[in-house]
C-alpha cells in the first residue's frame, strides 16, 4: 500500500496547477523511491516529467509499484479544499480503485477526508536519455513568465538564442516584432534574481509560445527556472522543488 504524508499540501497543489492544462489524465507512479509522473500533451508536442522523492514525505511508505490513474481536473477540485499549509496524507491500496486524501490544519483541530476514483490509463513512457546540452540558462522564473507572456501577444513562436554572455528571446508577428535580451549577471544579494549561462556552443532554436506560456504555470514551484538547449533536441524547462522537480520538454519548430 501507499501512505505518504506531505508537510505542505501546497506542494502538490502547485504541481497539479502547473500541469493540469497540459495533460488531463495521467498515472502517478508510486514506488519506494517516491512518486513520479510522465505524460505527453494531446498533440505530442510537449512532455511533462514530475518527480517527488520519498525524502519530501514524512513518513513515506510504498511497498509495491502502484500506478494511480488520475483525472487532474478531479484532483484539482479536491485539492481546492486544502490550504497550502495543511498537512496532506495520501493513501492507496495495492490495487486501488480510489485514492484517499486527508488534509489537516497545522493546529490539528480540523481534518478533511476525500476519496478520488481512479481510472485505468494506458500510457506510453518515453525514454529520455541524459543529454549534454549546448546551452544551459538559469533565470528568475517570474522573468521567464513575463517574457513568454509579452512575446505571445505578438507571435505564435519565439526564437531563443543563447550566446556566451546573453540570451535573447525574439519573435515577429503581423503587428511587428519584439525581443528581450538578458545579459548574464550575478545578483549577490538576491541570487534568485541572477541570470547565468553555461555555454558549450551558441545555439538558436524556435519554439511555440503557447506551450511555453503553459509551462510558466509552474513558476510558483521555484523562484528560478533552468532552460537547456541543443540544436534539434527538445527544449528542457526545469523547475526544481525541495525534493523533486517538474520538467517540461518541448519539441522545436523546424525550417527556421
Amino acid at each position: 500500500m501507499l501512505e505518504a504524508r506531505l508537510e505542505q499540501a501546497g506542494v502538490l497543489k502547485k504541481v497539479v496547477e502547473a500541469i493540469k492544462d497540459l495533460v488531463q489524465d495521467c498515472n502517478f507512479d508510486c514506488n519506494d523511491s517516491g512518486i513520479a509522473l510522465q505524460a505527453m500533451d494531446n498533440s505530442h508536442v510537449a512532455l511533462v516529467s514530475m518527480s517527488l522523492s520519498h525524502e519530501g514525505f514524512s513518513p513515506y511508505r510504498c511497498d509495491r509499484n502502484i500506478a494511480l490513474g488520475i483525472n487532474l481536473n478531479s484532483l484539482t477540485k479536491v485539492l481546492r479544499a486544502a490550504q497550502n499549509e495543511d498537512i496532506l496524507t495520501l493513501k492507496a491500496a495495492d490495487s486501488p480503485d480510489s485514492l484517499n486524501l486527508v488534509f489537516e490544519n497545522t493546529e490539528r483541530d480540523r481534518s478533511s477526508e476525500y476519496d478520488i476514483k481512479l481510472m485505468d490509463i494506458d500510457q506510453e513512457h518515453l525514454g529520455i536519455p541524459d543529454t549534454d546540452y549546448s546551452a544551459t540558462v538559469v533565470l528568475p522564473s517570474a522573468e521567464f513568465q513575463r517574457i513568454c507572456r509579452d512575446l505571445s501577444q505578438l507571435s505564435e513562436s519565439v526564437t531563443i538564442e543563447a550566446s556566451k554572455s546573453s540570451v535573447k528571446f525574439s519573435c515577429s508577428g503581423d503587428i511587428g516584432n519584439g525581443s528581450v535580451n538578458l545579459r548574464q549577471h550575478q545578483d549577490l544579494e538576491k541570487p534568485d534574481q541572477s541570470t547565468s549561462i553555461e555555454l558549450v556552443e551558441p545555439v538558436s532554436l524556435t519554439f511555440s509560445l503557447k506551450y511555453l506560456v503553459n509551462f510558466c504555470k509552474a513558476s510558483a514551484l521555484s523562484p528560478t527556472v533552468k532552460l537547456s538547449l541543443s540544436t534539434d533536441v527538445p527544449l528542457l524547462v526545469e523547475y526544481k522543488m525541495e525534493a523533486g522537480y517538474v520538467r517540461f520538454y518541448l519539441a522545436p519548430k523546424i525550417g527556421d
Partner: peptide, 14 residues
C-alpha cells in the same frame, strides 16, 4: 507558419 515537430520524433517508447 513554421512546422512543428513532435516529442516522439526525438524520444522513443520505453
Amino acid at each position: 507558419r513554421i512546422p512543428q515537430k513532435q516529442i516522439n520524433d526525438y524520444y522513443k517508447k520505453k
